[in-house]
């Protein structure tokens, strides 16, 4: 069964429907996910199809949603919680870091926490304050927690199925800017993609562009511009931020000798710093130029009028790539 031309929201709905149909222990919970179908329509139609018990509207309380999901998960359910925007995830960090991520460890495997928290990621859609953050590096710092950010409809489908089937907690960050940006055919075949595996999106020989989420599109545009100039860029979509598959990035950098990392989140202690450190430790002698980072700035994510000035642009990515390429 192939669903033709789905955007990312529709691919996510498709994966949720598949998970609900396949496993009676899967249930969805969140604010306005029932009859409304969620603020982004990611659960549209699921309430009608699977009922209010399995597609549960909750009271308005993010901490509660995360804590409830943990309790449910200890009973063997597989709750998939929706937090409307990443800025509203902060109240859940206590439960994610203190409980969900460590329950298996602190009970030596007696209790587990097979839950997924879905929320948005990144800016660029002129949303109100607190709706456009990119805090994956905070999540990546929590051992026991997986953090996944898809970049295409088909990969969102396969990665979300993997996240739901994984027997441990996963935070699934959906780039808001990509929800309706592109369409592609998605095979609704129930096949999950592997977790903790970077995806080599485009092969190239002169430099490695590392990106994830919506920033991958700036990386793609930059690669196209650079190709015209005769610079061949490889693109690695990190997609599973934690645990981080450094091996794929290292293998690429060993071939190209140059690396430019692109992400929306702030530069300081952003996930790009972790990637740069891995390269410094494991591929230093392959480097022909310093690793470059093109990121959000170390300031508060601005409101919509300035958000384009904050987010990495194709021009900034191209400039960084040229600097790396021309470095002597």
């Amino acid at each position: 069964m192939a669903a033709a031309g789905l955007n990312m929201v529709e691919a996510i709905t498709c994966a949720l429907a598949r998970a609900l149909a396949d496993d009676p222990d899967v249930l969805l919970l969140g604010q306005d996910i029932g009859r409304k179908g969620g603020v982004f329509q990611a659960t549209a139609g699921l309430h009608e199809r699977f009922g209010a018990d399995r597609v549960r509207d909750t009271p308005l309380a993010e901490t509660m949603i995360s804590g409830l999901a943990i309790g449910m998960a200890t009973q063997g359910l597989r709750p998939v919680a929706e937090i409307q925007f990443l800025g509203f995830l902060y109240p859940c960090l206590d439960n994610l870091a203190n409980h969900a991520s460590r329950l298996r460890t602190r009970t030596r495997g007696r209790l587990t926490c097979p839950l997924v928290v879905r929320t948005t990621h990144g800016g660029g859609v002129h949303a109100p304050e607190h709706h456009s953050e990119a805090i994956e590096s905070m999540l990546a710092h929590v051992p026991g927690l997986r953090t996944v950010i898809p970049s295409t409809p088909a990969r969102a489908y396969g990665l979300l199925l993997a996240a739901i089937r994984d027997p441990d907690p996963v935070v699934f960050l959906e780039p808001t800017r990509l929800y309706r940006a592109t369409r592609e055919d998605v095979a609704d075949d129930g096949v999950a993609l592997p977790l903790d595996r970077c995806h080599v999106e485009r092969e190239g020989s002169d430099l490695t562009l590392v990106a994830w989420g919506a920033a991958l599109y700036e990386a793609r545009e930059a690669a196209a511009t650079l190709a015209v100039e005769g610079i061949s860029a490889e693109i690695v979509d990190v997609q599973t931020i934690a645990p981080f598959d450094a091996a794929t990035v290292i293998a690429s950098v060993e071939r190209t000798g140059r690396c430019v990392i692109v992400h929306e989140g702030a530069r300081r202690a952003g996930f790009g710093a972790e990637i740069a450190a891995e390269i410094a430790e494991r591929a230093l002698t392959s480097l022909l130029a310093p690793v470059e980072r093109v990121t959000g700035y170390d300031t508060v994510m601005p409101l919509p009028r300035l958000e384009r000035a904050y987010l990495p642009t194709t021009e900034r990515v191209v400039e960084a790539c040229r600097r790396a390429y021309l470095y002597r």
Partner: peptide, 8 residues
């Protein structure tokens, strides 16, 4: 909250 989740 965990107890509420177990109960749910």
């Amino acid at each position: 909250l965990h107890a509420a989740g177990v109960a749910a």
